[in-house]
């Protein structure tokens, strides 16, 4: 084979590939056969989304739901960049900023539970029965006095859970900036599961979503116990936000709105409310019955692409 032949073949391959890529890329219409959802690890890890996805796909057989899970931070990034059609997250401040900047159309709350302050069964700082902010004050105080006995492990990863932890420190008299350089304060920089394992190893306190915590205690991986489990500071609300098609024209708005409506429908709410009863003896989420999305958004869907 001479060099000229090779050059011609290579040139043909390149031209064909370039034409193919171009033809592929000019389509700017949303792909309604796929619904991409970014979510936080806590929703994915518990297995709730798997059930919701199965029920939704049964109802809308033409749609393939694809769930991408990460921390709240990256989940929101995916939404801002238009890489997903819908976000299911739990960080109200950042959600509101997301909508204010025009990336999301609206915010629908569909479930809630509580963050739990968990720690060693002997409770060395004595926080049991306190409210969240007093418990954190107590941990800081005892940790200062006794850094070998009283420790706190933080996610330290800018996740929804970490945001909440910061807020509780700031709402308490301690202040987040005053704890990060303390010897009793340990940052794991990892997901909830790894953080729980680390807290268990160190016999430390930590803030956890109840779902992940129950999953870990159930299979005997950790011996920590829940110490503070209710109160306004610990309320953890999950919301759904469709990505704004004005920012990203390829967004599958129809699929996103259908999914949100499904989440708040009696069927979706029943799945949410029953989830975990069988496996953990108690539901992991409490459904939030809300009205379906206002109808004024729906006409958007019928605009031909």
């Amino acid at each position: 084979m001479n060099n000229r032949m090779i050059a011609i073949i290579v040139a043909i391959i390149i031209i064909v590939a370039a034409v193919g890529v171009y033809a592929f890329s000019v389509s700017n219409s949303p792909d309604t056969s796929k619904l991409r959802i970014s979510t936080t690890t806590s929703l994915e890890d518990t297995g709730l989304l798997k059930e919701l996805e199965a029920a939704f796909e049964k109802k809308y057989p033409g749609v393939d739901v694809q769930i991408v899970s990460g921390g709240t931070g990256i989940a929101i990034q995916y939404g801002e960049r238009g890489d997903v059609d819908l976000m299911l997250v739990h960080d109200k401040k950042r959600e509101e900023a997301f909508i204010k900047e025009g990336f999301g159309t609206n915010r629908t709350e569909f479930a809630y539970n509580y963050f739990w302050i968990v720690g060693p069964a002997d409770d060395p700082a004595g926080i049991k029965g306190l409210n969240a902010t007093s418990a954190f004050e107590k941990i800081a105080e005892e940790g200062q006095a006794n850094p070998d006995q009283v420790k706190f492990v933080s996610r330290g990863d800018d996740s929804g859970t970490h945001s909440r932890e910061k807020r509780i420190w700031n709402n308490s008299g301690v202040g987040y900036v005053n704890v990060t350089n303390q010897t009793w304060y340990i940052e794991s920089g990892k997901g909830m599961g790894d953080t729980l394992i680390l807290a268990n190893e160190k016999n430390a306190y930590t803030l956890s979503d109840s779902g992940t915590f129950l999953a870990f205690t159930k299979n005997g991986k950790i011996q920590l116990v829940p110490l503070v489990t209710t109160g306004k500071d610990l309320l953890n609300i999950y919301a759904a936000i469709p990505v704004n098609p004005d920012k990203h024209p390829k967004t599958n708005v129809e699929g996103a709105n259908n999914f949100v409506n499904f989440l708040v429908s009696p069927e979706g709410q029943q799945i949410i409310g029953n989830f975990g009863k069988q496996q953990y003896g108690q539901p992991l989420f409490i459904p939030v019955p809300t009205n379906p999305l206002p109808s004024l958004i729906v006409p958007l869907l019928s605009i031909p692409a």
């Binding site: 890529v21 592929f24 000019v26 390829k250």
Partner: peptide, 13 residues
């Protein structure tokens, strides 16, 4: 990513 220079290839995920 959709915002990236090759976003139109739909390769992400």
């Amino acid at each position: 990513s959709q915002q990236g220079p090759l976003g139109n290839l739909n390769l992400l995920f």
